[in-house]
């Protein structure tokens, strides 16, 4: 089961990360350009690092982070994978879920995305977040997990 193919997140999630990166990159670029125009420092000392950081925030980081994120929804468990340098591969059995959140931030809402958060009683990993799902997918996943919990509680 663990060899399940990971499902990629919705491509809009990449856009969402880029927009979030823009909140850092744009002010940085503006500041760099202003300093460049004022000309206190030799040409390129400010703008080049600023541009590199901006490029990282806008392009490289979202692309790479998106490539390494994924999830697998099995019959009785959810697996969430993320990260390249700091890789995290988490499995949450539905039987251990205490409650479920579906969160939509402003950027996500603009793109029609949601983040699904599973809460467990564990002190480590007490909440496992899965971002970048289509609204409808997140809601249906929530229903699946919820019905699983209900079924199990009634079965006891």
């Amino acid at each position: 089961m663990m060899t399940d193919e990971l499902t990629q997140l919705h491509p809009s999630h990449r856009t969402a990360m880029m927009i979030e990166g823009a909140f850092v990159a744009v002010p940085l670029l503006v500041a760099g350009i202003v300093l460049e125009i004022v000309g206190l420092l030799p040409t390129g000392v400010v703008i080049v690092p600023a541009a590199l950081v901006a490029l990282w925030c806008l392009g490289w980081a979202p692309m790479r982070r998106y490539r390494h994120k994924g999830f697998a929804l099995a019959e009785d468990r959810l697996r969430v994978v993320k990260g390249w340098l700091f890789h995290r591969d988490t499995v949450v059995p539905f039987g251990r879920v205490q409650h479920i959140d579906v969160i939509r931030g402003p950027v996500e809402r603009m793109l029609g995305l949601s983040t699904l958060v599973l809460h467990t009683a564990g002190s480590h990993n007490s909440s496992v977040a899965l971002p970048g799902l289509l609204d409808s997918d997140a809601q249906s996943m929530r229903e699946v997990i919820r019905s699983h919990i209900t079924r199990e509680t009634e079965g006891v």
Partner: peptide, 8 residues
């Protein structure tokens, strides 16, 4: 409650 494989 959950099992995570973490790699630095």
């Amino acid at each position: 409650q959950s099992v995570e494989i973490a790699r630095g």
